[in-house]
């Protein structure tokens, strides 16, 4: 599945300072849909190069990291259970860096 992932607010530093990643993510074996839960574990394995604890806590993002799917707060679409579709844009922004 083709997705565009964007990292901001300092999170880009965890993936070699690249903000926008066009990626191809395979569905987990036997699954029919790709959820944000799947995507996060994929991101952690494939994109995050350092300090993963700055990005994730447990199976979700670290509190203080905002997530938007197609410019919509993921708190409106079910957070980890949000299902993703072809060409979706997922944005991660840290609020934890200095103001």
């Amino acid at each position: 599945m083709q997705l565009t992932l964007e990292f901001g607010g300092g999170l880009e530093l965890l993936c070699e300072s690249v903000k926008v990643h066009n990626v191809n993510v395979d569905l987990p074996k036997g699954a029919e849909k790709l959820t944000m839960r799947d995507l996060l574990s994929w991101v952690r394995t494939n994109l995050i190069k350092e300090r993963p604890e700055m990005f994730m806590k447990g199976e979700s993002v670290r509190p203080g990291v905002l997530v938007l799917v197609n410019d919509c707060d993921w708190e409106l679409s079910g957070q980890l259970d949000t299902t993703l579709e072809e060409k979706d844009v997922v944005v991660f922004i840290s609020t934890l860096h200095g103001g």
Binding site: G9, L66, D71, G98
Partner: peptide, 15 residues
């Protein structure tokens, strides 16, 4: 942060 993101305001974020 949402406001800055939606409005595309130009800010700097490095520790």
């Amino acid at each position: 942060v949402m406001y800055a993101y939606f409005k595309k305001l130009d800010y700097f974020s490095t520790e």
